[in-house]
């Protein structure tokens, strides 16, 4: 019987009822060149979301509603021994700049905000609204 790796080479090696992996190497999760993960849609956006880790409460709302799966999370274990996803950043290769993540962010001062594409991240973080600014509005 053909191995999954052989099955990926030509179509006539595919076995009936086989489950084909979409990875070239399933262990390291290296995706093949035909996976759209290796295609960049970054040039679609005009504004980019910037992530402020100081204000984030790790609610993961942005993860579940991001249409392009470009909220990067990392699995951590809490003090009580429970699994929890911690937000680490944004995948700027696949973000189309729709702004859904900013809209759903629940913190009083949003921990994700849209900035023009050319703004460097350090500059955007420096411009972040403060608590006093919000009270004035």
């Amino acid at each position: 019987m053909a191995t999954p790796k052989e099955m990926l080479t030509t179509w006539d090696k595919i076995q009936f009822g086989a489950v084909l992996p979409s990875f070239e190497d399933p262990k390291t999760k290296k995706r093949s060149k035909f996976h759209s993960y290796n295609y960049k849609v970054a040039d679609w956006r005009v504004e980019k979301p910037v992530f402020n880790p100081d204000l984030c409460i790790n609610c993961d709302f942005c993860w579940v509603w991001c249409p392009d799966s470009c909220i990067l999370v990392e699995e951590v274990t809490t003090k009580r021994g429970k699994k929890q996803a911690k937000m680490v950043g944004i995948d700027y290769d696949h973000c189309k700049g729709c702004g859904v993540c900013v809209d759903v962010c629940p913190t009083p001062i949003k921990s994700l905000l849209m900035f023009p594409e050319h703004t460097p991240i350090e500059e955007a973080l420096a411009q972040w609204p403060k608590k006093e600014d919000k009270k004035k509005d």
Binding site: R31, H35, S36, Y37, N38, Y39, K40, V41, W44, R45, N58, C59, D60, F61, W63, V64, W65, P67, D68, S69, C70, V73, E75, K82, K83, Q84, A85, D91, D93, H94, C95, K96, G97, C98, G99, V100
Partner: peptide, 25 residues
């Protein structure tokens, strides 16, 4: 959601749906 978000994604980015499309959600 905190536990649910540990799931490795099986529908990944790089598709050409419109920005903000609910299909991929």
């Amino acid at each position: 959601l905190k536990e649910f978000a540990c799931t490795p994604d099986r529908f990944l980015g790089g598709h050409r749906l419109c920005p903000g499309c609910a299909h991929s959600m």
